[in-house]
Simulated assay, not measured.
Amino acid sequence: MKKNIAIVAGGDQSEVVVSLKSAEGLKTFIDSSEYNLFIVILEKNNWRIRLENGEEYPLDRNDFSTEINGKKLTFDCVYNTIHGIPGEDGRLQGYLDMIRLPYTSSGVLASSVTFNKFFCNTYLKAFGIKSAESMMLRKGMSVRPEEVIERVGLPCFIKPNAGGSSFGVTKAVQSSDIAPAIEKAFQESDEIIIEAFIKGTEVTNGIYKTLEREVIMPVTEVVPKNEYFDFEAKYTPGMAEEITPARISDELTRKIQKLTSAIYSILGCKGIVRVDYIISDKTIYLLEVNTTPGMTLTSFIPQQIRAMEVPIADVFTEIIEDSIARNQAI
């Protein structure tokens, strides 16, 4: 009998539009001959399943089920593709753990740690992993532009500490940019991070580890046509060149892949994870760890899977079956 898979999208932040696109992408990637696929949308207090014909049915939060035409529908596994709250910060994972429903992404601790960019990068520095000089502000705290320049210098990036897809991000190049950039970032998150600009080559690397094996994907080089890899560059065709494998030395590639594997293990990640870096003078700096990376047709992970020359459906079957096996082993 085919298993029922809930592809869970939506969320409570600006990234909802990207999440819904990822859900549509996953529906084409996952083998429909092996699984019954359903898109489930979680938006604040509106949890619902959306069928192919556009009909929607509410989800019962007691067991993550729904009733369609008098028949109860339950799920064997959740493929989590929410970018942001509550699917990337550990909240959804805690709920799914409590009802013992398998899911494909990292657990509560790894999700909550990686969602807080400042905390994650500061924590990983204890393991010798380099990242840009940075400072964090919470709502209610203030900082003078002179303090920012003294701590991290100019130019610098000012962005939400919890979030993604480049919403609320500004590259401040002069003192007068700092205050409006802080205000903009606070519209997306109650915490913001101010981070030193590092000039170099931006790359990203996907990975997953199952109970049976480790798969480190090829490294992708990112060359944005804008000043940096902003929302437009990420999601507008032609606004960035994404090169897989990256045009870097074999030695640097191996170092990045080894670092990606180490970060995955240190944080205790699960499922497919993507780690972003910048290379400056052959030194590798961590940018951020993404535990629910984008899964649109043109996202980095599908690109890297295609570069491995393996059937993309096989990868997602492996992820789903590993998640179910881990749940059964508890």
Rank of each mutant, 00 (worst) to 15 (best):
E34Y: 09
S261Q: 10
A172Q: 11
S166D: 11
S106H: 03
A132P: 09
A185H: 09
T291W: 04
R144C: 06
R91F: 07
F75T: 04
E191W: 01
S65T: 13
L211I: 06
E147S: 12
G70W: 06
V219I: 13
A110Y: 01
D190C: 01
K270Q: 11
S142Y: 10
K44P: 03
A262S: 08
R254C: 03
S106C: 07
E183G: 00
E183H: 09
F64H: 01
V315A: 10
L109I: 15
S112W: 02
E146G: 07
S142R: 12
L211M: 14
S131L: 08
Y35Q: 10
V16A: 05
I99F: 02
D314Q: 12
R48M: 09
R50K: 15
N116W: 08
G94Q: 10
A313E: 14
S111F: 06
A172H: 12
F197I: 10
G94E: 09
V310S: 03
A6E: 05
P293F: 07
K72C: 02
T81F: 02
F75K: 04
A110D: 06
K44R: 15
C269S: 05
L286P: 06
F64T: 04
C156G: 08
F29T: 02
N4W: 00
S142T: 13
T298K: 13
N46Q: 14
F119N: 03
V108Y: 02
S175M: 13
S166F: 07
T28I: 05
N46R: 15
I178F: 06
N226E: 15
G271Y: 01
V275M: 12
Q328N: 02
F231P: 03
P293Y: 08
I82S: 05
T260K: 05
T204C: 14
T104N: 06
E309T: 00
R151A: 11
G90N: 01
S19E: 07
E318V: 00
M239Y: 11
E52D: 15
K125Y: 06
N69S: 11
V219N: 12
S131G: 12
C156L: 08
E55W: 03
T283Q: 15
F38D: 04
Y79A: 00
M136D: 02
R254P: 00
D314K: 14
V17Y: 09
T283N: 15
F38A: 06
S165I: 12
T204M: 09
Y57P: 10
I41D: 08
F29M: 08
E221Y: 10
S19Y: 07
K130E: 15
E241V: 03
I324G: 01
Y35N: 11
Q13F: 01
E318C: 03
A172C: 14
I5T: 04
E24M: 07
E133K: 15
P102V: 00
I49N: 08
E195G: 13
R213S: 15
Y35T: 11
V8Q: 04
G238R: 10
Y103F: 08
K44I: 06
S280Q: 09
G163C: 13
I5V: 15
K199G: 10
N161F: 04
D230W: 05
P293D: 11
M1I: 02
S261A: 14
T236M: 10
P160T: 11
G140Y: 03
I7P: 02
E202N: 09
T296W: 02
V273Q: 13
F75C: 02
T298I: 14
A262C: 00
G70I: 03
N53K: 12
N226S: 14
I194T: 11
